[in-house]
């Protein structure tokens, strides 16, 4: 995704989205920030015409108009300071860099036990065949007419799996898993998808370094995508 060649395969999409009013097209690759972040490409309708169009839009004029309500100093400043303890209690989010991952660890075999008791009813044996999302398989189907978007075939970041399992699963008991259980489930689902080996241990150090198969499969539409 980081090369213009790869992006240009989608250029017919850009042409149709920008239509006849789109100016010169450019290919723009964002550098990795941080290094492991997937390099992404966006398509830009550059050119003076579209810039003038934006400036001339009534909404842009509205936004530029002075507003007493948003002038600096007008805020009543009613927020209370958030203490580190308060923040730590609520901040359950984990980004691709793995910052804020908790202590603890888990293996695929430990995760299989948790899965069998807490997940299998909705997601089926081996992550498929249940009434809810298919979690495993689907490799090589992303160009099919009916792609199967699973953790292994589609998800770009392993950290997302830990983040989501811990905050939202099991469906009827969210935020009930221990950190060890969340790591173990993450390990089991990654192993089920062939992403890690059965003896790999997932923890705050190893999880962010897991290379997901489809990590480079995403382009950022923001900020220039138009329909």
């Amino acid at each position: 995704m980081s090369t213009p060649d790869r992006f240009m395969r989608g250029s017919s999409l850009c042409a149709s989205m920008h239509g006849p009013r789109g100016g010169a097209r450019q290919v723009h690759a964002r550098g990795p920030r941080p290094a492991r972040l997937v390099a992404v490409a966006v398509c830009i309708a550059a050119g003076a015409a579209s810039a003038q169009q934006r400036q001339a839009s009534p909404e842009a004029a509205d936004a530029a108009a002075p507003s007493v309500l948003t002038a600096p100093g007008e805020s009543p400043q009613l927020g209370e300071p958030a203490t580190p303890e308060q923040i730590a209690g609520w901040d359950i989010g984990i980004g691709p860099d793995g910052e804020n991952l908790p202590e603890g660890s888990g293996t695929p075999s430990q995760g299989a036990e948790v899965y069998a008791t807490k997940c299998i009813a909705c997601h089926g044996e081996d992550g498929a065949g249940g009434p809810n999302d298919v979690l495993a398989g689907g490799h090589g189907t992303l160009t099919d007419a009916a792609p199967v978007r699973t953790i292994g075939s589609y998800w770009p970041y392993a950290t997302t799996l830990f983040d989501y399992v811990r905050r939202a699963m099991p469906y009827t008991q969210p935020q009930s898993l221990t950190n060890d259980e969340a790591y173990a489930l993450t390990a089991y689902l990654l192993e089920l998808n062939g992403v890690i080996d059965r003896n790999d241990v997932m923890n705050a150090d190893t999880l962010p370094r897991v290379a997901m198969p489809n990590r480079d499969g995403f382009m950022w539409a923001w900020p220039d995508w138009k329909q």
Binding site: L37, L142, Y154, T160, A168
Partner: peptide
């Protein structure tokens, strides 16, 4: 950087014919 939550990666992204996907 974006947190890359479940709903902006595995959901609400769109596949193109070549198997790449658009996000955001």
């Amino acid at each position: 950087e974006p947190i890359m939550a479940k709903d902006e990666t595995s959901k609400y992204t769109d596949l193109l014919p070549d198997g790449a996907a658009m996000m955001f």
